[in-house]
Each structure stands twice: as structure tokens, then as C-alpha cells.
Design a protein around this nucleic acid. Structure first.
Length: 662
DNA sequence: GAGCACTGC
């Protein structure tokens, strides 16, 4: 197991009560009363929907019940799929401890497949199971697949449910259990209900404590201020017990904690994913004086459980990804939470004794909130999703049955992007040349195109491109706070050609060091995240193996940066932009206006032509990870995109001349 | 000229 995962798991052990002892007596769990009912339902129906709160024991007990009842006939495997890695590992460990067996219970996540021929119960992430469908479209090794936490509605969960519905048509013996914490069971039942098929719904009571909910009398304008007031009130008037405050982002969290600094007897702690693991761990430390106030983002809603919380203060907002199909861009926005999210957040107060939840909105405002959050698939760029479905041979994507049908415009946008990348042809079929190969890489299709091209003699830089693409696939590379920090590191290790070459240099410097301790020192010195760089290394290894499978040559350009930059253009051509006289940038097609992100190494130079990797929407739309290019490369390397009309060529020519004149 | 919710292959 990687160090990264050991660390994450230790974290999980302390943070999640799945492992804690108080559930050790199996037979006291509510779920055990439903044992016969569950088994009977599986005999008479091929789809069973189980509704039950977190903590009722369904994720740990149902697989054991099935195992004991002999659902492993003919060497088939019982699978439980979950949205997140940590939950997958900890469930596997918990169940294998309970059953006192080692080999029969195992897990599989990306980069870490612990399963073998002896595995009978297999915990797996939704994404990993989706990947298995690519090799084994009917999932023939499984007798039962339990899709756990389906209410979270991640893209992979939705895709999995859609595909299972199709698989069940051909595999009459397969059983599907959908497990959800909310009462949207009817919509799943409706989705799976086909040709009079029998579907069973089971509701299982939870075992958490009641939580009293309070609302504001008057709406408030400033929820950070109101949250601080509420916390002080709780502190003065309520019995002991820690307070969990839900806010939207790290800036909110720090403002909030500052305003609490002078209150005696309160210990404020921030919690968000951008924090280093050590900082996050402080939330689970048992050494503290007085009452703790944990100010958290949404990470505490599902991913992390903190013991000892008796009070929840909820600002009733969340920062969520929004997708704009018109411009094919994703961005973050603060939006009101749904009622389902609100009750999940409130439930965090009732884990050790009856708790209290203070919502920072009026009751009438609350009643107007949406019942449940918009599923991820409805607010995402669908390029990878559509490509994946194409690779499974699903031709008519607009007619493919999703639980919630994505916007037609999003599907069309995805098809356009795939066409421009050469992944699909005029008929919408995956191209024989590169279409299937692009689909196989677990990365952005634009990056796959760059990787595949980098082996060609023309570019001759696949070693470098592997490293760049891996670095583009990680988050939170810079561990310290501040734009200055990122820029400082980039200047120290970077290159004038742009941010992509900076990433390459950072990776190569890190990778040259063999010794673990020295690597750690290097990261501290350069304010880089060790975790992020190790992950980049793992991704590189995985991509390397896939390239080997396709017989792609791994070659180095030996410092010839131009080959790399040209190769970037073959994937990122749609993100080519030209500088305006005022220093902003405009995309060549679409004429969208962007600002260079302050962490870009190109901030000082502002070259006339660039390609960028992504856009982030803050107060202004910023382009990130930017490199300098030559305008001539565009029509040369992406003629299908830029020279579909002669006018476009003339326009580029014209703009070039303008530029020379400036 | 100035700060980014959370997952996952």
C-alpha cells in the first residue's frame, strides 16, 4: 500500500465511526432484523432498493448476509461499490475483521487492487467498477452488485446504474441492490422498472439520535457574522459538546475563525481539503482544552465524520460546480443547499447524544429549498462520459437512458469536442485510429491526444508529455498559502516558456531524488505537496503501462522545448488565445475574454499567443496553466479546427500582423 | 494584479 493511502487510512480510522467499537455486536444492528426479508426479496426480484440512514449497518451486513446465504455460487463474487476510496478500504477492513477472514474480503481502488482469486466479497469504487465494464461488459464475475450511497449521485454512480440496467437485460441471474440514505427510492424503482419486472423496496430504520432544528426569525445578510454570534450563544447557554460550523470555502472559514479569536474557552479549527493531512488531523486530536469549534467546508458533510459533535451551525449554502453548456465551461458558485443536504448536515449533531442544529435561514426560506441537489451529471462537462459510452458501443447517446437525462446541448458540445479531437468521425463513430485509445486513458481526452501524438517523430517528447499530463491530473500541488508561494516555486524551478514546462521541471526535480527523506525535504523547501507529487508519479506509471499496451514509444526530446509546446497545441488548440493590447486574452474561436491567472509564470511576459489548460471563474474568468505558442502552429497542427473556413486563416494572419505592428 | 467545494478512473 502506498504511504499516501496508509496516511489516509489512519486518518479514516480516527475519523470514521465505521471502525469504532460501538457497532461491534452484529446482532444488535437494526439491519439484522431484515435478514430474511432481504434474502427473500432477492429470490423474487432482481432489483432491490434498500433505504436506510448511515449507521444502520447495511454496507457492512448485507454483503455478509449474502455470503452466508451462498450467493458466491460458481465462484461468483459479491461486489459492493461506493463513491469514495477511503470508505471502500475501511468497509473492506471492517468486514474482514468481523468475518475473521482475510482472503475472502478485499477491495479494489485505482492504483491499489487487493483482490485475488480467493476474493468472495469485493469492495470497489464506482469508478473502478466502471473501468471493469470496459474489459468485461457484462460483469460476468459478479452474482450480486450492491451500489452503495447511490443518493450521492456522482457521475460514476449514475453511469453505473444506467449500465446495470442494460446488463440485467442480458444477465437474468444478476442481482442489483441499490442502497440509498434518502427516500428517492421511488425514482430508482421507476428507472429500473421495465416490462413488469419486480422491484422490492426495503426501508430500514437508523440508530442515530434525534436532532432539534432551529431557524432564524429574520433573514441575515452576513452568514459569517451570524455564525459567529450563534456559536457564542451556544457556548454561553448550552451544555458542553463540540460545535461543527458549515461554511462555503476557505476564505469564509478563516474570516469566521478570526472573529472568534477573542472568545475564551473556544478552540477554533479549520477543516477543508486544501489543508495538509497534518492540519486536517488536528480535528481528531483528543488533546484540547475547552469547547472545540470546527469550521468546515462540505468535506464534513459526507467524507469526514468527527466524533463529539453535539451542535451544528449551518450557513445553508454550498460552493458547487456549475456547468455552462453554451461556453462548455465549468465553474464554481455559491448556491443554497438542498433539504437532503441540510438533513445530512444536521445529522452530524446526533451521533453521540441528541443534538441541536441551527440553520442560518428562516423556516420559510428553508421550505423553498430544493428537495435534493442537482446530480453531478447535470452540471458537468460530458466529454469523457460520452467518449466512455461510445467505447462501450453505445451509439445513440441522446437516447441513452440516464436516471436524469443530461441537457441535449451538453451532449452535443461533448460530441463536438470529441470530433475536433479526432476521437469520433463524421458518423459519430469512434475512430479506428485513435478513438479507442483515447477512451482507454483515465484522463481528460485532450490530454490523451497529446500523449498519443507525443510519440510521433514530429514531436518526439512522450517521456516529457507523460510527466506533464500526470502533473495536470493532480490537485493542490502547492502546499503553502499564497500566490507568491506558487510563483516563487515556479520561478525557482520553472521555465519562461510557460506553466506546463514548470510542471515538468518540478516533476523531474522531484523524481531525480531517490531517498524518501530527501524528497520530503525537497518538498518542504519548495513548498510543494509530497502527497500530490507521489500521486503524479502513480498516475505516470499507470499511463506508461497503457502506452506500452498500445506500443507507443517512450522517447525524450532532450530539452527541445518547442516539440513539447507544439504537441500541447494538438490537444489544447481549442484553448488557443491571443493577447489584447490591455493584457487580457481572447480565444481564437469564440472570442471569449480571459485574464491570466496571477499564479501563471507568464504574468510578467504576457506573450502574444498562448494555449491554456483550464478556466477558473473567480471574480473574473482566469486562464490557468498557460504556455506560449506560435500562431502559425494553430493552422498547421489543428487545420480541421482552424481552417474550416479560409476566413479563419485570414483572421489569424491579420491578427499576427496587428501584433507585429504593436 | 491578486485566493479554488468535493470526489473519482
Amino acid at each position: 500500500m502506498s504511504n499516501d493511502l496508509i496516511e489516509e487510512l489512519r486518518f479514516e480510522k480516527d475519523s470514521n465511526n465505521i471502525i469504532a467499537g460501538h457497532e461491534s455486536d452484529r446482532n444488535s444492528l437494526p439491519i439484522m432484523r431484515y435478514r430474511d426479508h432481504i434474502l427473500y426479496s432477492l429470490e423474487i426480484a432482481s432489483t432491490v432498493i434498500v433505504v436506510g440512514e448511515t449507521g444502520c449497518g447495511k454496507s457492512t451486513q448485507i454483503p455478509q448476509i449474502l455470503y452466508e446465504a451462498g450467493w458466491n455460487f460458481q465462484d461468483k463474487v459479491i461486489a459492493v461499490s461506493l463513491p469514495r476510496r477511503i470508505a471502500t478500504i475501511s468497509l473492506a477492513m471492517r468486514v474482514s475483521q468481523e468475518m475473521r477472514v482475510k482472503k475472502q474480503v478485499s477491495y479494489k481502488i485505482r492504483f491499489d487492487d487487493k483482490t485475488s482469486n480467493d476474493t468472495k466479497i469485493k469492495f470497489i469504487t464506482d469508478g473502478a467498477l466502471i473501468r471493469e465494464i470496459m474489459c468485461d461488459p457484462l460483469l460476468t464475475q459478479y452474482s450480486v452488485i450492491m451500489v452503495d450511497d447511490a443518493h450521492e449521485r456522482s457521475i460514476y454512480t449514475d453511469l453505473l446504474l444506467s449500465l446495470l440496467k442494460k446488463i440485467k437485460v442480458k444477465r437474468k441471474d444478476l442481482r442489483v441492490i441499490i442502497s440509498s440514505a434518502t427516500i428517492d427510492a421511488e425514482s430508482y424503482a421507476e428507472f429500473f422498472h421495465d416490462k413488469g419486472e419486480n422491484i422490492q423496496i426495503l426501508s430500514i430504520e437508523g440508530r442515530t439520535y434525534p436532532v432539534d432544528v432551529y431557524y432564524l426569525e429574520e433573514p441575515c445578510a452576513d452568514y459569517i457574522k451570524k455564525a459567529a454570534e450563534t456559536v457564542k450563544n451556544i457556548h454561553e447557554s448550552q451544555p458542553r459538546g463540540d460545535i461543527l460550523v458549515f461554511l462555503t470555502g476557505q476564505e469564509d472559514i478563516h474570516l469566521f475563525l478570526q472573529s472568534l479569536q477573542d472568545t475564551s474557552g473556544l478552540e477554533g479549527l479549520p477543516l477543508y481539503s486544501g489543508l495538509s493531512t497534518e492540519k486536517q488531523m488536528e480535528v481528531f486530536s483528543s488533546h484540547h482544552s475547552g469547547r472545540r469549534v470546527i469550521a468546515s467546508t462540505n468535506i464534513a458533510e459526507t467524507s469526514i465524520t468527527i466524533e463529539g459533535i453535539c451542535y451544528v451551525v449551518d450557513c445553508c449554502f454550498v460552493k458547487a460546480k456549475i456547468y455552462n453548456p453554451a461556453s462548455n465551461t465549468e465553474y464554481l458558485n455559491v448556491i443554497p443547499i438542498s433539504k437532503a443536504q441540510a438533513s445530512q448536515r444536521a445529522g452530524r449533531a446526533g451521533r453521540i447524544r441528541p443534538g441541536k442544529c441551527y440553520r442560518l435561514c428562516t423556516e420559510s426560506a428553508f421550505i423553498n429549498l430544493q428537495e435534493s441537489s442537482v446530480p453531478e451529471i447535470l452540471r458537468s462537462d460530458l466529454t469523457s462520459t460520452v467518449l466512455f459510452l461510445k467505447s462501450l458501443g453505445i451509439r445513440n447517446i441522446p437516447n441513452f437512458q440516464f436516471i436524469d437525462q443530461p441537457n441535449k446541448t451538453s451532449v452535443v458540445k461533448a460530441l463536438e469536442v470529441l470530433y475536433s479531437l479526432g476521437a469520433i468521425d463524421d458518423f459519430g463513430e469512434l475512430t479506428k485510429t485513435i478513438g479507442y485509445q483515447i477512451a482507454e486513458f483515465p484522463i481528460d481526452p485532450r490530454f490523451s491526444v497529446m500523449l498519443l501524438n507525443s510519440c510521433k517523430d514530429e514531436f518526439h517528447c512522450s517521456r516529457e508529455m507523460l510527466e506533464i499530463v500526470s502533473m495536470l491530473s493532480i490537485q493542490n500541488l502547492f502546499s503553502g498559502k499564497g500566490i507568491e508561494n506558487a510563483l516563487w516555486t515556479k520561478r525557482k524551478l520553472g521555465a519562461k516558456e510557460g506553466d506546463h514546462i514548470c510542471l515538468l521541471n518540478i516533476f523531474e526535480n522531484f523524481n531525480r531524488i531517490q531517498n524518501f527523506q530527501e524528497r520530503k525535504r525537497f518538498c518542504q523547501e519548495h513548498k510543494l505537496s509530497m502527497r500530490a507529487l507521489q500521486r503524479a508519479y502513480q498516475i505516470k506509471e499507470q499511463l506508461y503501462r497503457i502506452m506500452g499496451k498500445f506500443k507507443c514509444k517512450i522517447v525524450s526530446c532532450d530539452g527541445d522545448v518547442e516539440g513539447i509546446l507544439r504537441c500541447l497545441v494538438t490537444g489544447l488548440f481549442a484553448n488557443a488565445a491571443q493577447r489584447n493590447p490591455n493584457g487580457t486574452y481572447k480565444t481564437v474561436k469564440g472570442d471569449q475574454l480571459f485574464y491570466l491567472h496571477p499564479t501563471s509564470i507568464l504574468g510578467a511576459l504576457k506573450p502574444p499567443w498562448v494555449v491554456f489548460t483550464e478556466v477558473i471563474q473567480q471574480d473574473k474568468p482566469y486562464i490557468c496553466e498557460v504556455s506560449e505558442i506560435d500562431a502559425d502552429w494553430l493552422s498547421e497542427l489543428a487545420p480541421h479546427y482552424f481552417s474550416d473556413t479560409r476566413a479563419m486563416q485570414l483572421q489569424i494572419q491579420h491578427r499576427r500582423l496587428q501584433n507585429v505592428a504593436q
